[in-house]
Simulated scan of single mutants.
Amino acid sequence: MTTVFWTGFWTFLLDQASKYYVVHYLDLRLRGEIDVLPPFLNLRMAWNTGINFGLMSGNSDLARWVLIGLAFVICGAVLYWVHKDRPGRMGLIAAGLMIGGALGNVVDRFLYGAVADFLNMTCCGISNPYAFNVADIAIFIGAFGLVLWGGSQKAT
């Protein structure tokens, strides 16, 4: 479980540091957008009150607290899962990525009332209107990793 803790800790720290740097130091919250490597990588400020791609988006305090509670429940369920059916090292890293990312977004909801999304990537002539953050990347990779390496139970 030490692997889960340290992976989660560093994921959380990287997520929060990147958000602080972009939102406050670069002042993206006021500037709105910064082209880094156009059109491939841009910083576009987006405050997400819902889940991925703005689903379940609403500006109500109830939705905010439900999503915070849901994140804690998911973190607890992942911890329980990897404790009961201990995966190998890759599965533990995946669990840490998922938990660290989820807790990073929880802190945003506490501090700002919404998740700070700022990364926008476009490629191959397809314009991407969505923004995401380091926590979202970690959650996605962590969930995918848990599917691949999530425990000792193998499908037959």
Rank of each mutant, 00 (worst) to 15 (best):
M1H: 09
T2H: 08
F5D: 00
G8P: 01
F9S: 01
F9I: 05
T11K: 00
F12S: 02
L13S: 05
A17E: 03
A17V: 15
S18N: 09
S18K: 05
S18R: 08
K19C: 06
K19Y: 04
K19H: 06
V23D: 02
H24G: 00
Y25A: 14
Y25D: 14
L26N: 12
D27V: 04
L28P: 01
L28R: 01
R29D: 04
R29E: 10
G32D: 05
E33W: 08
D35N: 13
V36Y: 11
P39G: 10
P39R: 07
N42D: 13
R44H: 14
R44N: 13
M45G: 03
A46W: 00
W47H: 05
N48F: 03
N48W: 02
N52R: 04
F53G: 11
L55E: 07
L55A: 15
G58A: 15
G58F: 02
L62Q: 07
R64N: 01
V66E: 04
L67V: 04
L70E: 00
A71T: 15
F72Y: 15
F72A: 13
V78A: 09
V78N: 04
V78W: 05
V78Q: 06
L79R: 05
Y80A: 14
K84W: 07
K84P: 01
D85Q: 14
D85W: 10
R86V: 06
R86D: 02
P87R: 07
R89E: 12
I93D: 03
I93R: 11
I93C: 10
G96M: 12
G96R: 08
L97W: 14
M98R: 00
M98Q: 15
I99C: 11
G100H: 05
A102D: 09
L103R: 07
L103K: 07
G104H: 05
G104Q: 06
V106R: 00
V106N: 03
V107D: 00
D108S: 10
R109H: 12
F110S: 07
L111N: 05
G113I: 01
A114L: 02
A114D: 06
V115C: 09
D117G: 11
D117W: 06
F118C: 04
F118M: 13
F118N: 02
L119Q: 11
N120D: 13
N120F: 08
N120K: 14
N120C: 14
M121H: 09
M121N: 09
T122F: 06
C124D: 07
G125W: 09
P129L: 08
P129S: 05
Y130K: 08
A131V: 10
F132R: 11
V134N: 00
V134P: 01
V134D: 03
A135P: 03
A135D: 05
D136S: 13
D136V: 14
D136R: 09
I137E: 02
I139Y: 03
I139Q: 06
F140S: 14
F140Q: 02
I141G: 00
G142S: 12
L148T: 01
L148G: 01
L148Q: 07
L148F: 08
W149D: 00
G150M: 07
Q153F: 00
K154F: 02
A155S: 13
